[in-house]
Design a protein around this nucleic acid. Sequence first.
DNA 1: GCTACATTAAGACTATTTCTTAAGCTTGTT
DNA 2: AACAAGCTTAAGAAATAGTCTTAATGTAGC
Lengths: 156, 156
Amino acid sequence: MILQEGFVCKHYTFVEKGCFKMYGIDEKGTEHNLGFAAENDWVADLGSFYSGKPSKLFIEAIEPSTILQIEHQDLLYLYVNSPKFDRNFRVIVEEKFIELQNRLLQNFSSNASQRYLDFLAQYAALASRLPNTQIASYLGITPEFLSKIRKNISLK
Amino acid sequence: MILQEGFVCKHYTFVEKGCFKMYGIDEKGTEHNLGFAAENDWVADLGSFYSGKPSKLFIEAIEPSTILQIEHQDLLYLYVNSPKFDRNFRVIVEEKFIELQNRLLQNFSSNASQRYLDFLAQYAALASRLPNTQIASYLGITPEFLSKIRKNISLK
DNA sequence: GCTACATTAAGACTATTTCTTAAGCTTGTT
DNA sequence: AACAAGCTTAAGAAATAGTCTTAATGTAGC
């Protein structure tokens, strides 16, 4: 667990090996996965990281993992002293932004079954690593219902 | 209309005055607003803008507006020749990413009524400018249902 | 003053999803 | 090897959020 609700996100984390989930917990106690970060991906609650305010999110390993972390002030130092870092982190966030926007659009336009198929198409490699409970939490449904969806799809 | 589905997003657009909506249209023909951009905000379909692939989105004025636009190649030129632009556009996207992530979390954790209240709280200035149809499209519901929600809220 | 569109209304309807219970299956741990 | 814990499938009942439909009223530009 590299970030807990109520704490400030102090690090931008690079995943060298393994896999993490970033999620929030609603009033009912249900987890909602915002996304996953596997090999060569970056993860952080940017809102908390840059503002210094307590996070509403959790970031937690779902596999044995090794990571590299950079602290806020050190990253700022890099930004100021070497423009390359602005460039690289701009590109990283842009890619994540595009991903998130696509996801939001999918969420609007379709039911859980279609969203599951979209997820499979886009994150095939991840899908086979993740337990269904995590995928269900990503899709915003119960694991039982995901099981029904899978059955339905296989019947077609 | 500064971007249509099927066309490449050629410009990063700065809104000087007025207001734009960015939306997709699903198989049923329903519009889904991804977001709005008003004064001093930037808007573009970044996926299409950077990849050069046709967009799936529309960007359209909902008020008489004046804008400034920069083309892809010109922005690249600025990136290469002046590190400040990497910095500034990194910050712009980071802010938008944080916004989008908050929205996704809200979408998961709550029903349309709560999402409407969240929208009002966060975009009070926008809410009074936008017709209900546009807000409904942002929330992912029908205008009729938004009307019910408003009634319900006012009854409390 | 027209026309077009936005808003409110309200009731019937429905589809998606949750809930519940349960059994079988994996996987890792002692 | 055996056990525990959690994952997966199953299946039916139940809930509910949101749509559809129709319609009357309001509003704003032309």
